[in-house]
């Protein structure tokens, strides 16, 4: 009997602790959300209202109407989507090779690709800046897409690989016996089976490119071509006390990503953990 009560007590303690823990961790995001929706007159009220008594769309309207945020959003969407697509196109064959093809030096090339993930961007930034300047890639989408894509490539390859090696190899063998060649076996049998994994990989690659700041700071000098992270990083210097605008801009640019991540959380968790651990 005593054991039963102890168990119940343990569950209650766990529940209370878990709730407190989650509340603390969720608070910064809640605060951002509330700040974005505050009435401008309440923004600098001290102490701030933890639960605002009135809400307003003023700041949301302001970032689009006055701060040209729509254009930055579009820049980020274009750069991140193209980076993600190209990264999948170059990454898919490589992932297949390092998980299914027995070629000489496979272990070396796998590590070569993985190690690019650990590269400090700063160590390649100057030569890239000089090369891109002579090629006329400064202030172009291509100048951002190329490095972002290469940056996300290692993670893309390792995540895809993790999904690929989970498939039983017999499936592929059976397809080969049935007269498929390797390419058609990949397209008809493997690809449909790892489609959720490919989707998760795409989101992870997209977020990787979406978060990128340093390349934009170095390769973009025109205001109209700024990406979302760059535009938000610049806001404090350009406006005084821009917290309402910053919060509104942040919510607009993160909420869609958060929703997608939460919907596909199972696959994304599988992908994120697989990228770091050899399966």
């Amino acid at each position: 009997m005593a054991n039963k009560y102890r168990r119940r007590l343990a569950r209650i303690v766990l529940g209370v602790f878990g709730t407190l823990f989650c509340t603390a961790l969720a608070f910064p995001f809640y605060w951002q959300f509330v700040t974005a929706l505050r009435n401008p007159q309440d923004l600098f009220k001290m102490p701030p209202e933890l639960f605002p008594s009135r809400l307003s769309l003023t700041y949301l309207r302001l970032v689009f109407a006055e701060h040209n945020f729509g254009a930055y959003l579009l820049n980020s969407v274009i750069v991140s989507s193209i980076s993600m697509l190209l990264s999948l196109i170059a990454g898919m064959p490589a992932a297949y090779a390092i998980s299914r093809v027995h070629f000489k030096g496979r272990s070396f090339w796998s590590k070569f690709i993985l190690s690019a993930n650990m590269f400090p961007i700063i160590a390649v930034a100057t030569p890239l800046f000089i090369t891109f300047r002579s090629l006329g890639l400064i202030n172009t989408y291509a100048g951002l897409v190329i490095p972002s894509m290469v940056l996300t490539l290692p993670v893309t390859i390792w995540t895809l690989r993790a999904f690929l090696i989970k498939l039983p190899i017999e499936l592929e063998h059976a397809a080969l016996v049935d007269g498929c060649n390797r390419f058609s076996a990949f397209v008809r049998i493997i690809l449909p089976l790892i489609a959720p994994g490919v989707f998760a990989t795409a989101i992870i690659a997209f977020i990787g490119a979406w978060n990128e700041l340093m390349f934009s700071l170095i390769f973009i000098t025109k205001k109209a071509l700024r990406t979302v992270p760059m535009a938000i990083a610049m806001m404090p210097g350009e406006y005084s006390l821009p917290w309402g605008e910053i919060s509104a801009a942040s919510i607009v640019s993160t909420l869609p990503v958060i929703i997608v991540v939460l919907i596909c959380q199972k696959q994304i968790i599988a992908g994120l953990t697989a990228g770091a651990v050899k399966g």
Binding site: A26, F29, F44, I258, I269
Partner: peptide, 28 residues
């Protein structure tokens, strides 16, 4: 808990920096 864990992952570092800067701000 999973939702709480995944949200920070999906937010760009710069935005997280601004969120916290505002919370740490001396006056407001």
């Amino acid at each position: 808990v999973r939702a709480v864990v995944l949200v920070p992952y999906a937010i760009p570092g710069v935005i997280v920096a601004q969120m916290f800067s505002f919370m740490f701000h001396g006056d407001f």
